[in-house]
């Protein structure tokens, strides 16, 4: 940093902080620190955004399929299958705890298998591949083991070919994987926090070494540890606030860019991962927390180092 700009910062600091702000030259304290903090904040914000998006995905998907049960009627004979399907749908509609039932239309079932088997297969007539009839059931509560057993019992008489599956069971491995990714995001944030703390600690130690003479003089003139610590704390605070803002802006660009890409996929589960306003608020807190962390680290580091001096 050039001398004039150092003087500019110093004068600016004096407006906020009083005279001790200029005890240590600002340029010597800063160095690459704002950029290090910018990178840390950007990575942390991206990790946090990923964690929040994954959390939203799980929450939305869980809410959607928690009470969902799929009844498959596995019967090769078309007439029997249709008859069992209708009876099963009737029975389920009357069953306590069932919110709704929907017999999935045959063309919709055909549409589901079309990507694998292609079109033109006469599944409906049973002349080609027999495809089960599907009933989508929504329960008031979660589709736990007890509920599934209750439905199986209710259907045993009217539709012996019925197979009952809680939808949550199919996606449990996916959820588990997502939760693992969430933990990974949390671990990344923790690591970045540690890295930020270490970077500030090293920068402050280095600045203390470079400014040792000045600090000794200030001490001998009656300066207190707190006064000296405030200089470093304030300087790191400015660095962290500036770097944090830049880092957040970078992260926002990345998050919005990725969000647009994922939105383009049109996949329902991914769409559910969109960040809500509280998530954006949390992201905005990242540079603020980084600034507080950096300032606290700087203060403790300086106070600890000064205790070793007379």
């Amino acid at each position: 940093m050039s001398a004039p700009s150092t003087r500019g910062i110093t004068r600016g600091l004096r407006l906020f902080a009083g005279a001790e702000a200029q005890l240590v030259p600002q340029a010597r304290l800063s160095g690459p620190m704002p950029w290090v903090i910018a990178i840390m904040v950007a990575l942390t914000a991206i990790a946090l955004a990923a964690g929040l998006a994954l959390g939203n995905t799980v929450t939305a998907a869980t809410a959607e399929i928690e009470g969902g049960v799929t009844v498959q009627l596995v019967e090769p004979r078309l007439e029997v299958r249709d008859a069992q399907a209708r009876r099963a749908a009737d029975t389920l509609t009357r069953l306590p705890g069932v919110l709704s039932t929907r017999l999935v239309p045959q063309d919709e079932v055909d549409g589901l298998i079309e990507p694998w088997l292609g079109s033109g297969i006469e599944t409906a007539t049973g002349s080609a591949i027999p495809i089960p009839a599907l009933i989508d059931v929504r329960l008031r509560g979660a589709a736990d083991r007890e509920q599934v057993t209750r439905i199986e019992r209710a259907l045993a008489a009217v539709a012996p070919s019925a197979r009952v599956d809680a939808q949550a069971n199919w996606l449990r491995p996916v959820f588990d994987a997502i939760v693992s990714l969430q933990w990974l995001a949390i671990a990344l944030m923790a690591l970045l926090t540690v890295a930020l703390t270490a970077a500030v600690l090293l920068a402050v130690r280095s600045a203390l070494g470079v400014n040792r003479d000045t600090i000794e003089i200030v001490h001998l003139l009656g300066g207190t540890d707190t006064q000296i610590a405030r200089v470093f704390q304030r300087s790191i605070g400015f660095d962290a606030a500036g770097g944090g803002t830049v880092g957040l802006a970078l992260a926002m660009l990345v998050i919005l860019g990725l969000g647009r890409r994922f939105a383009g996929l049109g996949a329902g589960m991914v769409d559910n991962g969109a960040l809500v306003w509280t998530d954006w608020l949390l992201l905005a807190l990242v540079p603020l927390l980084a600034t507080v962390l950096a300032m606290v680290t700087a203060r403790f580091t300086v106070m600890h180092a000064l205790r070793k001096m007379l």
């Binding site: 001790e20 200029q22 005890l23 003089i217 200030v218 009656g222 300066g223 006064q227």
Partner: peptide, 17 residues
């Protein structure tokens, strides 16, 4: 203090106080 002017060096004890 090398980065301070003569004025600021002389003012230092008062500022510290």
């Amino acid at each position: 203090v090398q980065h301070l002017s003569a004025f600021d060096n002389v003012a230092l004890p008062l500022r510290v106080a």
